[in-house]
């Protein structure tokens, strides 16, 4: 464990808490892509299959359980409790275009050809692109509530912090995970546009609005 990794994970935790807070305080899931949230639940469930047979640490176990539970809870909130506040007509990204290629890539690139390892690879590739329905929705509406942009910023920071973590681990532990690193760099790159607007507008106290 190094500080980049720790702050990355804490940022991930913070993003989920901000999202829950957004839903609770506005009593609405407006502006949140159900598809992205469903993809994240898929990512956590397919990645953490080892929860049942592999013990890493209490930290690792607790975080995994939290990510699975919170992502399922968010789906419940969106699908049932706040259902009327979700507008499917603007959440139109075709998730088949993400699920299909992730499955193909997982069959091509994995560390072992076993069910958990292929699912693990699948989850890594899927996580890299799971934010796209959300970003697509943002692009379509052209604006976002400030709290939603904080959620996205915390999520992006989590991914960005994993990169120095890998560099650090490469030098201190001689550890390289080419699948996670490649997918992680792609995933972080997807946030660059968002980060640009976040830093130049939201953090200057303006509303998140994309140029027409």
């Amino acid at each position: 464990m190094n500080l980049f990794r720790l702050f990355g994970d804490l940022s991930h935790l913070a993003s989920i808490i901000i999202l829950l807070q957004k839903i609770r305080s506005t009593r609405s899931c407006r502006g949140i892509s159900f598809k992205t949230q469903a993809l994240y639940a898929t990512v956590f469930i397919t990645r953490y299959l080892d929860l049942f047979y592999d013990w890493v640490s209490l930290y690792n176990f607790t975080m995994k359980v939290f990510f699975i539970a919170s992502s399922c809870y968010i789906l419940y909130l969106m699908r049932y409790k706040y259902r009327p506040t979700h507008d499917p007509s603007i959440d139109t990204f075709r998730v088949e275009y993400l699920l299909g290629p992730s499955a193909v890539l997982a069959l091509l690139f994995h560390y072992r050809f076993t069910v958990p390892e292929v699912f693990w690879s699948f989850s890594i590739f899927l996580e890299a692109v799971a934010i796209l329905p959300q970003l697509f929705m943002l692009q379509r509406t052209g604006e976002a509530e400030t709290i939603t942009t904080h959620y996205l910023a915390a999520l992006g920071a989590y991914r960005a912090l994993y990169i120095p973590n890998w560099i650090y681990r490469y030098f201190t532990e001689d550890m390289v995970d080419p699948i996670a690193v490649t997918a992680g760099i792609v995933q972080t790159a997807l946030y660059l546009d968002f980060f640009y607007v976040y830093f130049t507008k939201v953090l200057q106290g303006q509303k998140f609005e994309l140029p027409a």
Partner: peptide, 10 residues
């Protein structure tokens, strides 16, 4: 293939 890296990351 080499052995998979330890899955200690989230």
């Amino acid at each position: 293939h080499e052995a998979p890296p330890t899955k200690d990351e989230l």
